[in-house]
Design a protein around this nucleic acid. Sequence first.
DNA 1: ACTTGATCATTT
DNA 2: AAATGATCAAGT
Length: 230
Amino acid sequence: MPDVNTSTPQTLSDLLKRARAIAGLTLGELASGLGEQPPATLRRDKGWVGRMLEQALGADASTAQAPDFAALGIELKTLPLTPEGRPLESTFVTCVELADPDAISWETSHARQKLARVLFIPILTHRRTPPGERLIGQPLLWTPSPDEEARLRNDWERHMRTIRQGYAHAITAEDGDVLQIRPKGARASSRVWGQGPSGELELIQPRAYYLRPSFTAEIIARSFALSTAS
DNA sequence: ACTTGATCATTT
DNA sequence: AAATGATCAAGT
């Protein structure tokens, strides 16, 4: 059973060292080191992989609206990847702030804060691979390039314009080149207070921002190119 | 095959 | 009830 240090890393270099140390392990091996057992399927345990990695790397206890590693300003994300490097899923970013859209700008948005510095942990897997057999990949610390941030911002500002005009309910997953908005709730009938067309309060379906797989694929490809450059 | 909309567990 | 961790599964 591998020995897994679960204390909170104090420096970026410590965190990266820790992440590199668990690369190459299966999630089953990691779980074993943490005294846990992997579920047979993620169907009823969709957040298991993320929680396992948070624990293994010593992320701060879930403090609302703060990065996973608050002292380092780093957000942790697992990214399911085929062995060929293709993301299997979109990446959850944060819930859309629907209540008071006039008060928010890109600079102060939760979305930008979440995406400012992200430590991606690739999980090499196919859809049918049991969670315990999935392989932890090499970590990738990402800060949006100026171009990437411009594209994120462009999508975010278009979404927010629609929301401010009171048409949040009309946004679909097809909107946004790299940053999409999809429903996010306990069930399809969930509702939160949002802003209607005349500025009045209106109950609408809660939504969240997601990075499209094509965007995270770019990030991964760029990193791979760097890591193999001679 | 891939995407969109729906869903599940946990914690605060 | 809402936010965070995501993946599922129906539809195209």
